[in-house]
């Protein structure tokens, strides 16, 4: 695997994670628990789609076959999508949505912080812009974890259930393979062990304050990075890609 090939896949993974999570958050639009949350969720979705576009544009450049961000987003199928399974999980109740974001943010921030020091200038530039946004995401999803955990009996129970349900998807965030190894060796991608320890300490401190229990590290679901997704992703893409697929070549 060449560095270029690895970098292409690496950018797709970052782009796909952001795009799919942004899409899920967009589903809330107009249906949030209060207007302020509608605004906050849309903000998050907007930041993530902005980051997704940066990564997909760069992936297209790295690949060098003239594919645009929209070609990559709208004309790849389920098996070619490389996002982690966590982000494609359905919104569920607001606790599921926030726990999903919290787990993602707690990984995303240290990852992107490390990427600001990447030897690849473009990755470093994308990350430098993204870290401010992600720090805010983590702050707000962490705040909700604490409010839920230390709020009412019902909110505590819902948050704990969501955490127990989604924990199995957290392991895939740290999975490494050849793509990671090639880029790590070149100083382009960071050491995932360091990202994991930052994640662990964030989770530890937030869950403690939230009076929530960290689930046991049992079986961890994987496969997303290899395009082996849950059944949810196909429906998301069918919806997302419908116009591009129905009217091939049209400009919107």
């Amino acid at each position: 695997m060449t560095i270029q090939e690895a970098l292409f896949t690496y950018c797709l993974r970052r782009g796909d994670d952001n795009l799919i999570l942004s899409h899920r958050l967009g589903e809330w639009c107009g249906h949030g628990p209060q207007l302020e949350e509608d605004i906050a969720l849309t903000n998050r979705a907007l930041d993530l789609i902005g980051q997704a576009r940066n990564y997909l544009q760069y992936a297209g450049q790295v690949e060098g076959k003239g594919r645009s961000e929209d070609d990559l987003a709208y004309l790849r199928n389920e098996r070619q999508y490389t996002n982690v399974k966590l982000v494609e999980q359905p919104n569920g109740d607001y606790a599921h949505t926030m726990v999903r974001s919290f787990l993602f943010d707690a990984w995303h921030l240290p990852l992107q912080q490390a990427l600001t020091r990447s030897k690849d200038d473009q990755l470093a530039a994308i990350a430098s812009k993204a870290v401010k946004e992600i720090a805010y995401h983590l702050k707000t999803s962490g705040d909700w974890m604490i409010r839920f955990g230390d709020g009412t009996a019902e909110s505590h129970q819902r948050a704990q259930r969501a955490l127990d349900d989604l924990w199995t998807f957290s392991g895939e965030l740290f999975a490494t393979d050849d793509v990671e190894a090639v880029l790590f060796a070149a100083g382009i991608a960071p050491d995932m062990a360091a990202v994991k320890s930052a994640f662990d300490s964030t989770v530890q401190s937030v869950l403690t304050e939230a009076t929530l229990k960290r689930p046991m590290d049992a079986y961890m679901a994987t496969g997303g990075r290899q395009g082996k997704h849950s059944e949810h992703l196909g429906f998301m893409l069918a919806e997302m890609q419908y116009l591009q697929r129905a009217y091939p070549g049209a400009i919107w």
């Binding site: 967009g26 639009c29 576009r53 919806e239 997302m240």
Partner: peptide, 17 residues
Amino acid sequence: TRAPSLRRKAILLAKVQ
């Protein structure tokens, strides 16, 4: 969720916001 391009999706999100 069905906007036909990423740019349109972002613009629409911002509008609804």
